[in-house]
Simulated scan of single mutants.
Amino acid sequence: MKTLLDDLVASVRRQQLQVRNVVVRQGGDVIGKHDFEEEQPALLYSVSKTFTSMAVGIAIGEGAFRLDSRLTEFFPEAAQLAARDEHVAALTVHDLLCMGSGHAECPVTKADWSEGRSWDIERLFFGEPFVYAPGTRFTYDNSATYLLSKLIGLTTGVPLDEYLDPRVFRKLGIPKPRWDTCPKGVPQGFSGLHLTAEHLSRFGQLILDQGRWKGEALIPSGYIEQATSVRIATSDFDPPFATDDHHQGYGYQVWMNAYPGSCRMDGLYGQYVVLLPDRNAVVTFVSAEPHRMTAVLELTWTTLLDKL
């Protein structure tokens, strides 16, 4: 008897894609799961960003800061630069969330990862020229997400991972996960989170359900609505791997898909959580695909969508 994931599994094998685990949820339940490898916590790379974003949403709901709060309120270097750089003076939390910091390139590309003392990402962020007015141009910027992680610590008194543990992870039945830190002890925010595919799919379900889990509101629904809709255009984002799914706009650390109404969490080497509201479904991939990661995402459209 043919099952939901037969075509997906066959396509993975035919293309020799390095997919590890796939989980499909619909109506809140797991309706399909396939492990090409034994499931274990895996580095989620930039899928981590969406967790950072949701921590920001919770913190805003708790009154720690606002979307329009300026970075000069929290970061001394921003306050110092603001006097001579109007772009820095205008930078807000919203601008960090939507990758609209004003940089022309990601400052983290200049970090020397071989020497821990060079990992001052905050300094790299403020040392990079602010070429564009904040919020006007999308530049994929890991340092912006790092600043959001640091902001959580500055305003709540606990680091990002500890902040999310009682508010999200424990509520979802997820043991406190590993989240890699920078040398100063701040969780990376832009990467570093380790989860299993099944646990990750629970987080996807939480977002699909507008922040509610088992009847309890964990994340403000209004924030999720903003995060999962276009906050900035990505039409100029054109790396070699880009597809139509990279040109539909970006929310708050969430990508929009070409399929109408859908969005995704997106990480290097094929980590994806695809939210399909019109099908009440969440598709989760954990992978180690070094060359054709977008082919992993496209499995959703080519092998699953018409079955949901």
Rank of each mutant, 00 (worst) to 15 (best):
E62D: 15
S48P: 12
A104N: 13
T72W: 01
D95H: 14
L81W: 03
H94N: 14
K33E: 14
G32R: 00
S101E: 11
Y45Q: 11
G57Y: 00
G102M: 01
D68H: 13
L67I: 03
A59C: 04
F65G: 04
A55Q: 02
A78H: 05
A42L: 12
A83M: 12
A78Y: 06
A83S: 15
S69Q: 03
E86K: 15
G27I: 01
H34S: 06
A82W: 07
G102Q: 02
D85V: 08
S46V: 05
D35N: 15
E77I: 14
A82V: 06
F36V: 06
H87C: 10
S48H: 07
A89N: 07
A104M: 10
R70T: 12
L91A: 04
S48I: 04
G63A: 03
L91V: 02
F75M: 01
F36R: 06
A78E: 02
M54I: 13
Y45S: 04
F36H: 01
E62T: 10
F65C: 08
K33V: 09
A89E: 11
A42G: 08
G32P: 11
C98A: 13
L96R: 09
I60S: 06
A83K: 15
V93D: 10
L71M: 13
A59P: 03
G27E: 02
L96F: 10
E77T: 15
S46G: 01
Q40C: 02
S46C: 04
H87F: 01
F51T: 10
S53A: 13
V93F: 00
E77F: 00
D35T: 11
I31V: 15
D68R: 13
H34V: 08
Y45W: 13
H103I: 03
G102E: 05
A104H: 12
E77S: 12
S48L: 02
L44S: 08
A42W: 12
D85W: 02
V88D: 07
D95S: 06
A82P: 11
L71A: 07
M54P: 11
G100A: 04
L44R: 07
V56G: 09
A64I: 05
V47S: 01
R84A: 14
H87D: 05
M54E: 13
A90T: 12
